[in-house]
Design a protein around this nucleic acid. Structure first.
Length: 586
RNA sequence: UGGGGUGUAGCCAAGCGGUAAGGCAGCGGGUUUUGAUCCCGUCAUGCGAAGGUUCGAAUCCUUCCACCCCAGCCA
């Protein structure tokens, strides 16, 4: 009678990506493999540990790990931790957790270690010396302000730094002083000597090392100079034997620099950089700064608030790794800026949950229904527990018999959804397929019933609906003339689980909350969270497990909240409602 | 004429000189003890625009237009 299913009892991933056309990166890799450029591909997912991962990172993770999986290669998880000022161990832990949860494995073996850019700091330092020896790098004492002026503008060339032509010996000595901590932050930097007139600003003597007198989460106080992204990234890739270094579009301008280092340094391999368009979702904000603001200012409950587009938030909400991976697969990978409709994400979640979530019944807004002729319920009625109960059977899943069955206690008094009853007899059968005074409806899995009369309180609100059941209609159609309007869900008024239900809606009610001059906070949806107390769930939900989703029939997909659930009061988060085509027509 | 990138349906996205795949959304219908799922059908004489090459162009050439990214000692 339990509805729990083992985690390996899932329908196979629909969108495994095997029968769709190859994206441009897959085409490149296929060619590289065919031509023998590489015998095995190596990719990497290189987050900076300065925030929580979100849906956009999921796309990158699925891309990099997915490519390795598909082509029999390897993908590293590498922290690009070159800026101690912004990073923290907390983020490293959460990132590792998120990647694991998505179901990916880094490295060659199952126990492979996570990589860190900071592990290569000694090597980077050696390579910096190498460039100085080759007269391709120099220590520059221009202030940040002066450096900006020397750099020129987008349309005008820059001019050479006065420190550009120092001798090799002087540069070596100055760089040593930088490393030894003899200069303050900002006093000087090590720069590559490339071309101050280059139309690509990244080539105008870019900075290789800057001074940061901060202790680093991995290397402690070992260094006070840290390599920049540009000087570190390609070399990290080369050290790890990365074959295809995949990053987002805004780094395309850095590629010539990436290649310059690879060509001018004795690196152990020759990685190539490719760029793809980062994910943009409408009705969603994915800038780390803005997500942090939502958390810090208390607009949400934390990084894992179920309304957040963070991986941990979506996880808590009840989205599954399969849904996220399928989503990443169906949106594709290209170089064109695009804004994906969140509807696609919601589709991926529904699609997965429909296949895999066991069914259950839960009444959110209870209305008591008294079955006056319950004694005619049939032969199976038991009274062992003191109360006459008919145990009816329902499948765990309508299309997947292997998911077993549930037994539900059907009793004289049950709860139905307040919205599933009306006294308005003028509503046609087509317009209202629920319970109407004097008409018939089926209680899912149980009898067809007829609403006979209602009881109301002083305020005129309906407190009870009295009805009669049609005998012998469990698993059978009623006699002629008693055709039910529809099927509604119910829960025994005496044998159920009290719970709280949290309904979520989009966090923003504007499709581009942070576009242009807009302030995204102005578009926070005031109805993004609705807390429903006093919901009544079927008995089997007493055993609900974390990370297990259930379909509350006719309502949507729900999962236990890891934060607010207690021993006595489970809290269910609605991941997403059922598709409701009817709502569009009324 | 700074440099780089991108334009195929409401939203994604195939297409790689041979006559516009697929998915999401929508619309119409069928099945259904979930207004769900599932199934069937429908949805670009048109590929940012204009010229040109060709028997044939979304694909090649020319010009133009629009949008995105770059002037952190962030990544």
């Amino acid at each position: 009678m339990t509805t729990n299913i083992p985690s390996n009892n899932e329908k196979p991933n629909k969108a495994s990506g095997q029968d769709r056309p190859l994206n441009f990166l897959e085409q490149i890799i296929t060619k590289d493999l065919q031509e023998g450029k590489h015998s095995q591909i190596v990719t990497r997912f290189p987050p900076e540990p300065n925030g929580y991962l979100h849906i956009g990172h999921a796309k990158s993770i699925c891309l990099n790990f997915g490519l390795a999986e598909r082509f029999g290669g390897v993908c590293n998880l590498r922290f690009d931790d070159t800026n101690p000022a912004k990073e923290d161990q907390e983020y490293i832990d959460s990132i590792i957790e998120d990647v694991k949860w998505l179901g990916f494995q880094w490295g060659q073996e199952s126990n492979a270690e996570v990589k860190f850019a900071s592990k290569y700091f000694d090597q980077f330092y050696e390579w910096a010396l190498h460039l100085i020896h080759d007269n391709k790098a120099y220590v520059c004492h221009l202030s940040p302000d002066e450096a900006r002026q020397y750099r020129g503008t987008l349309k005008e060339p820059g001019k050479n730094s006065p420190y550009r032509d120092r001798s090799k010996e002087e540069n070596l000595a100055e760089f040593e002083k930088m490393r030894a901590g003899e200069y303050d932050e900002g006093a000087c930097v090590l720069r590559a000597k490339i071309d101050m007139a280059a139309p690509n600003i990244n080539l105008r003597d870019p900075i290789l090392y800057r001074i940061r007198k901060q202790s680093h989460h991995q290397t402690g106080d070992q260094w006070c100079i840290y390599p920049t992204y540009d000087f570190a990234h390609g070399q990290e890739d080369a050290i790890e034997g990365i074959t295809h270094s995949i990053c987002t579009l805004e780094f395309a301008d850095h590629r010539p620099l990436y290649e310059w280092f690879i060509e001018n340094l004795p690196v152990p391999s020759q990685p190539t950089q490719y760029e793809f368009a980062r994910l943009q979702l409408n009705y969603t904000v994915t800038s780390k700064r803005k997500l942090k603001q939502l958390v810090d200012e208390g607009h949400v409950d934390g990084w894992d608030d179920p309304r957040m587009p963070t991986i941990s938030g979506m996880r808590r909400r009840g989205y599954t790794p399969r849904a996220l991976r399928n989503f990443c697969d169906i949106i594709g990978v290209t170089k064109s800026d695009s804004q994906v409709d969140v509807g696609m994400l919601e589709y991926a979640v529904r699609d997965d949950l429909n296949d895999n979530a066991p069914r259950a019944m839960c009444v959110l807004q209870p209305l008591k229904l008294v079955i006056t002729n319950f004694d005619e319920a049939g032969d199976g009625v038991e009274s062992s527990g003191g109360e006459p109960t008919l145990w009816v059977t329902q499948p765990g899943h309508p299309n997947r018999p292997e998911l077993g069955e549930r037994k539900l206690p059907f009793t004289k008094e049950v709860y139905i959804e307040r919205g599933d009853f009306t006294e308005d007899t003028s509503l046609s059968r087509k317009k209202f397929k629920r319970l109407v005074s004097g008409d018939y409806v089926r209680l899912r899995g149980a009898h067809v019933i007829k609403a006979e009369r209602v009881e109301k309180d002083e305020a005129g609100e309906i407190t009870e609906v009295h009805c009669t059941l049609v005998p012998n209609t469990v698993g059978a159609n009623p006699p002629e003339g008693m055709k039910p309007r529809g099927v509604i869900h119910w829960v025994s008024a005496t044998q159920h689980v009290n719970c709280q239900v949290r309904l979520y809606d989009r966090l923003f009610n504007d499709d581009a909350p942070d576009a242009g001059e807009k302030n995204f906070l102005d578009f926070i949806n005031p109805d993004s969270l609705t807390i429903v107390d006093g919901a009544k769930a079927e008995l089997s939900l007493r055993d609900a497990q974390l990370e297990q989703s259930y379909q509350f029939e006719r309502e949507g997909y729900f999962t236990l909240d890891r934060r607010y659930s207690t021993e006595t009061l489970p809290v269910f988060n609605r991941a997403i409602g059922l598709k409701d085509t009817w709502a569009n027509k009324v």
